[in-house]
Design a protein around this nucleic acid. Structure first.
Lengths: 225, 225
DNA sequence: TTTACACTTCAGAATTTCTTCAAAATTGCA
DNA sequence: TGCAATTTTGAAGAAATTCTGAAGTGTAAA
């Protein structure tokens, strides 16, 4: 169980780290907003503990970043104020739990374990697009009982469409989602065509369906099936 | 699969009973704390569904009773309030899962099945992958009646695959599971290749089967045999 | 201490996937 | 209809990933 603790008070942070390590968590620490975003971007954590008040940013924004990255990461918010406002906003932003300072370390650890358990259960999700089913665990896509063999990019693209059902996605959207950071904004995103084509071809070969609709001048969207 | 449903609202209880019966569960119902303890004491249930709010006792105490009796019974907690407090305390008391009212019956049933599966794995010492059987007690692996002689790492890897049947495991997943703590996140996990190769070779030599499938760019998974 | 086996590292080969490029087809609009 | 912009397509080269063998290091039993 890998945990990132984002907390600027070094002493508290160390205490948390020590305690959680004793409980068999693998713990990393970040002491500011900047290094936290960095770590979140580069590693897959199971859980992130976030202090809302950081010297160089607002912890809540980390929650949005996590969600934007589609990570299945559990989150718990820490806040000095036991204000309902923070709590409500934190949970609204997609946090799994909230804990007001001061707290007992045992409570933190037991809540983290609880979050982890439920997250893990939720983990195996199958997403369906008409008769096409994406098994995210197995990384496999089926049409009825036939498998559609996709490469990594193709798979990611289909998943992106499936999780943004019926919304039009621009080439830029797709490029940013699949290639992430090192996409240059000045680029043309024409290389996306290739992957659209390949995905279409493979799906059509198996299912005889053309699932992707071209919205001329804008982008693509999933047809409603 | 024998289930005890401990729920004082008769109508809800009946609904659950009907639904679960359709899904091939054997269902018993208890409408109060007293009769629940009675039933738990006298029968071996695979699963118990417990409503926390009962007229004559607190559902949580049933969890303690189950644990005290050392039963290998899966437990799922129901609660009217979606309060994190109840959830945390329930899971800490050893419940396997938590469900807030109102819920869909299909969700209840799918969670119960999930609990059952993992419980069963814990209890059952022999795990099979097609005709390959892993005897966890003896730390031995057989194909039909022939032994497949594996090293420690190879054995652990096969077991890891077997207990995550058909799920794609990345090199990183494998590295973290087999080497645990002192894996550096910045490392490349290329050394995993060797063990994949060795495991494949040994299994193939004895069984003529290649059980591991490469998911290019992602990882490996067990083939469905 | 020796020996056998397990584990790790490394470099290059083999394979699969991704990207680029240019030409052809299609679309929206004047 | 004709034009410009956009999308589609195929082919080839580039890049990334995986596989393999060989050599080096560590470890536990004889």
């Amino acid at each position: 169980m890998k945990v990132l603790v984002v907390e600027d008070e070094i002493e508290l942070s160390k205490n948390i780290e020590n305690y959680l390590q004793k409980e068999d968590f693998q713990v990393s620490c970040a002491y500011d907003f900047f290094s936290a975003t960095d770590k979140i971007a580069s590693f897959e954590y199971d859980l992130v503990v976030i202090d809302l008040m950081l010297p160089d940013g607002y912890g809540m924004d980390l929650l949005y970043a996590l969600r934007a990255n589609q990570k299945n990461t559990g989150t718990l918010i820490l806040s000095a104020k036991n204000s309902l406002d923070d709590k409500v906003r934190g949970l609204d932003a997609g946090a799994d739990d909230y804990l007001a300072k001061p707290f007992h370390l045992i409570e933190l650890s037991s809540r983290l374990k609880a979050i982890y358990r439920t997250r893990k259960l939720q983990g195996n999700k199958n997403i369906s697009v008409g008769e096409i089913i994406i098994h995210t665990d197995q990384h496999e896509v089926y049409f009825q009982d036939k498998i559609i063999d996709l490469t990594k990019k193709e798979y990611e693209m289909l998943l992106f469409f499936a999780t943004n059902s019926k919304r039009v996605l621009t080439k830029q959207n797709i490029a940013e989602h699949l290639w992430g950071d090192y996409i240059d904004q000045a680029d043309s995103f024409d290389f996306v065509y290739q992957h659209i084509k390949n995905l279409r071809k493979k799906i059509q070969k198996v299912s005889q369906l053309d699932v992707l609709e071209t919205v001329y001048g804008v982008g693509y969207k999933l047809k409603s099936l």
